[in-house]
């Protein structure tokens, strides 16, 4: 069985980096390195995690300045070679700014920072990030953001839907897509998307905050366990 390594990028203002590190290191028992934003080397990691937070103070636009940091050049190169990248919350905003994922994350429709647990439906369980789930699974995972309102032009939206690139959608506890279940006004209740090639995923909810029952939910662990299974070919044993 081949080993693998995760890398968690740390920007000035990242604040979910340690949660992501904890999820893969202590809960899954995998190798993981922090990657400082000024570094020019990904140190051979297989999966890059762009964590949540407020990189560069969210100045200009969320993720706008981070996209040009030294490490992001390497992350983009890694993604273009087919390497796996997951952007969570601020990480999703950064991926949208770089153009690795389509669309943009606008200010929440309510204008409020939303911090609560939501229900997500797995729309595509045939990705490197979701293979441990079953399509239609309803997950209980927290969101915490002020700019998570996914927007794109109608042509791109149609392509995302047709190609199965919408991976997670906000739903109610019964799995129904409703306006009330949408915490931020995202088009089509979109919570997470994947690129056409299937190696770059962005999501606003925080799977790394839902990896142990002690935290209230372990529903997010499947995202990281799916990546381990994808890279190593072996199935991690979850407690």
């Amino acid at each position: 069985m081949a080993g693998m390594k995760f890398g968690v990028v740390v920007f000035p203002g990242s604040n979910c980096d340690h949660d992501a590190y904890h999820a893969v290191k202590h809960v899954l028992g995998e190798n993981v390195d922090f990657l400082w934003h000024k570094e020019h080397d990904l140190r051979g990691v297989d999966v890059v995690i762009l964590p949540g937070g407020f990189s560069y103070g969210d100045y200009l636009r969320c993720g706008a300045i981070s996209q040009f940091s030294a490490i992001m050049k390497e992350v983009i190169r890694h993604a273009e070679r087919g390497g796996h990248v997951i952007g969570i919350c601020n990480g999703f905003q950064i991926l949208a700014e770089t153009g690795l994922l389509p669309g943009a994350l606008l200010r929440n429709r309510s204008l409020k920072f939303v911090c609560k647990s939501v229900h997500l439906r797995v729309e595509n369980a045939e990705t490197a990030f979701t293979r441990r789930y079953t399509q239609g699974d309803v997950l209980h995972i927290p969101v915490a953001h002020g700019e998570g309102n996914f927007y794109t032009d109608s042509e791109t939206l149609r392509e995302l839907e047709e190609n199965g690139q919408v991976v997670f959608r906000y739903v109610d506890a019964d799995g129904a897509v409703t306006r009330e279940a949408n915490p931020n006004g995202s088009l089509n209740n979109i919570a997470g998307i994947i690129n056409r090639h299937g190696n770059v995923l962005g999501m606003m909810p925080h799977p790394e905050r839902a990896v142990e029952n002690l935290l209230g939910s372990a529903d997010g662990l499947g995202v990281f366990a799916s990546l381990v299974e994808t890279i190593t070919g072996s199935v991690p044993v979850l407690s």
Partner: peptide, 8 residues
């Protein structure tokens, strides 16, 4: 390149 995001 930076100051505006043409998507939005």
């Amino acid at each position: 390149k930076l100051l505006a995001n043409p998507v939005m």
